[in-house]
Simulated assay, not measured.
Amino acid sequence: MNKTIKILLADDEELFRKGIYFLLQREENIEIVFEASNGSDVIEYLQQKENLPDIILMDLKMPEINGVEATKTIHKDFPEIKIIALTSYNTKSFIANMINVGASSYLVKNASPKEMIDTINEVAEKGFFYNEVVMKVIQDDIISDRKANKSKFDEEFITSREREVLDLICQQLSTNEIAEKLFISSRTVEGHRTSLMLKTESKNIAGLVVYAVQNKVIKLDVL
């Protein structure tokens, strides 16, 4: 039985938010724990630390505290919570900005219901979900904040096994899929992943992927 994914919905457009609510509540593995119409309500709810969500669907344009600023705060104070950015805009600058501040995925509001549910499940299982458009933005070095704070990559910085695990993470394989492919246990994969995050100072898997792509740790053909 799949683990229940706890979702927080944050969008100031009530009709849109309710539409997502009624769509997601039909999914057996999804539970809506809170709805918010602005970033302030999101942060206030999280600070209560009761029934924290696994994933926040975060609209970018909201009153009081917008989705970008809320994402920055949440990424810093609650790095274990994954954020899927919701926006009407699909420009490179918007994508780059949200990945910079810690979003685990990026979903355009005209996406299909299936795309949204698939994205939620991917993020819940793997920690992030970047489609080809997002990976191209990262590869093109448009995202710069994290890269500027990292020293030049040292070839001996990570072990050969860690590099193999990192390659497969960037291919968006799950922990179990990586374990099967490398003939190691899931716990061993998690150990390598933890080590990689510590070495690269990444707060989550999404940040680790950004680091790997921008420092050319992985081969471009895996993208």
Rank of each mutant, 00 (worst) to 15 (best):
A70S: 15
E50K: 15
E115R: 12
K3R: 12
Q47F: 05
E132T: 10
N176M: 06
T188C: 04
S151P: 07
E80P: 09
E122C: 04
E27C: 11
Y89G: 07
N29A: 09
E80Y: 07
E156P: 03
A206D: 00
L220P: 09
E125G: 04
L198A: 09
F34I: 03
G39H: 06
S151W: 06
K199Y: 05
D140Y: 05
E35Y: 00
F157M: 11
S151D: 12
E28A: 10
K181D: 14
L198T: 12
Q47W: 08
N131C: 03
I99L: 14
G39V: 09
L60A: 05
Q25F: 01
V101A: 02
T194K: 00
A212L: 00
K181S: 15
K136H: 07
T175K: 08
E35K: 14
F129C: 00
L223T: 12
I5M: 09
S174G: 14
I178E: 00
K126P: 03
E190D: 11
E125D: 14
V123L: 10
L23E: 11
K216I: 07
S88T: 15
E162N: 07
E177M: 04
K203P: 02
S93W: 01
K61H: 14
E13R: 10
D11A: 05
H192G: 03
L168W: 00
M62A: 10
T200C: 03
E132A: 13
V101Q: 02
E190V: 02
V101H: 01
F22D: 12
N38L: 03
R17D: 08
F34K: 15
H75F: 15
G127H: 01
I184A: 06
D221F: 14
L60I: 13
D11F: 06
N90R: 10
A124Y: 11
T188M: 09
N131W: 06
I205A: 03
I184Q: 06
L86I: 12
K150N: 07
I184F: 05
I117N: 02
